[in-house]
Structure formats: C-alpha cells, structure tokens
C-alpha cells in the first residue's frame, strides 16, 4: 500500500480518454436530465426556481472541484489528474451559462425591458454577470495553443478565478433573504480552498503593485 502511494502513478492515454468521456457523460447528462425533468414538470412546485438553484449551485460545486485539482495533484502521487482541470473548468462555465439562460428565458420569460432594468438596478445580478464575464475570458483562452502564445500573461489572467470565486459567493449570499443561510457554508469551503494559496495570491497582488510603481 505504501509503495503504491509513494510511486507516482501515470495514467495511460486510454485511461485519460475514458475518464474524460465519463466526466462529459455525467456532467452533461445531469444537466440534460434536469432540464428534461423541468420541461415535464417533475421538479416540484416551481421548476424554474429548482433549475436556477440546480445550475447555480452546481456551477459553484464544480468551481470548488476545479480549484481542488491542483492542490490534489501536488499532494497525491498522480500528477496526471491536472489534465482534467480544463475540462472541469469548462463545465463550470457551461453550468453558469445555463444558470443565466434559465434566468432570462424561464424566470424573466424574455421580458427584455425587465432584464435591462434588473441588470442596471440590482447589484447582485451585476456581481453575478461580472463573475460570468471572467469565466468567459478564461474559457476562450483555455486552449493549449493560446496558453503557449500568451506565456506569463496567461497565468495572470487565469488567476482571476480567485476573484471570480469571491464574486460568485457574493452573488449567492446577496440573493438570499437572510444573511445567516446556506452560503455561509460555501464561504467556509472557499476559505479552506484559498488558504493553501495565500502566499501565491499575496505575491500575485504584490506583483501587480510593483508593476504599477
């Protein structure tokens, strides 16, 4: 057992492809199944609210998992799991976009003037949209070829995921009727995820400060 843990395990190409296929099947399958339940009115009293919660909460869950990949790769004797990070990140984006689409098409029901006024007047919607814009930027720059081209700037850009995490939780907390509620647990998990990265985050902010001077 000890030998198994100490020796780094390499995943074969076939294993990685199988794993990725499974991730695709599970995550897109769950999303599609939830929409199917919604369309057939099997999501309780208010399918719209159920879908908004499902897409939003699972986008956060996936973001947590994505942020867990690199510390896990460092501490487990299998660095190859890093190769799943981009895929998981893309699903964070997919679930977040579904969340917005459900809001526009099923919550507001294509009332564009209402959408416009809500975006202008409601801070928690603006915060959520900012988080989604960050996710969009990270998604379009997620290709390996672009990553190589961008060099160090790629990492600075993708460090925005930590800003995104805070914005997402702010959006979540702000949407609740009371402060003492479920989002507090999410803030605690986020703190646990950010703690091992505190040096990195500090240097990142320090780095940008030095540059400005």
């Amino acid at each position: 057992m000890r030998r198994l843990l100490s020796r780094p395990a390499r995943l074969t190409r076939a294993q990685i492809i199988t794993g990725k296929t499974l991730v695709h099947l599970i995550l897109s399958g769950l999303l599609a199944f939830q929409f199917f339940l919604g369309v057939t009115n099997q999501l309780g009293a208010d399918p719209v609210e159920a879908l908004i919660n499902f897409t939003g909460l699972n986008a956060i869950h996936l973001l947590f998992i994505t942020l867990l990949v690199s510390p896990a790769a460092r501490h487990l004797p299998c660095g190859d799991i890093m190769r799943y990070r981009r895929l998981l990140g893309l699903y964070v984006f997919a679930y977040a976009v579904s969340h917005l689409l459900v809001y526009i098409f099923f919550e507001l029901q294509r009332d564009w003037s209402l959408l416009a006024s809500e975006i202008i007047e409601r801070p928690y919607i603006i915060v959520g949209l900012c988080a989604l814009m960050i996710l969009t930027a990270l998604t379009v720059t997620s290709f390996e070829s672009l990553r190589k081209k961008m060099g160090r700037r790629w990492q600075s850009l993708h460090n925005l995921i930590y800003v995104c995490l805070v914005l997402v939780l702010l959006h979540f907390s702000w949407s609740q009727k009371t402060i003492i509620a479920e989002p507090l647990i999410y803030w605690a998990v986020a703190a646990i995820l950010l703690l091992p990265r505190k040096d990195k985050i500090k240097t990142w902010f320090g780095f940008s400060k030095r540059k400005r001077r």
């Binding site: 929409f35 099923f106 009332d111 809500e118 949407s175």
Partner: peptide
Amino acid sequence: RWSQASERRIATGGLFARN
C-alpha cells in the same frame, strides 16, 4: 433587490409555462 412589477404564477405546467 428585485422588481415587484410582475410575478410568476405557480399553477400547473412545467418549464415552458408562460406564467
């Protein structure tokens, strides 16, 4: 934090109920 000008009426129907 949200508009009170309209509401969604919870009755029968699934996601596509224009409520």
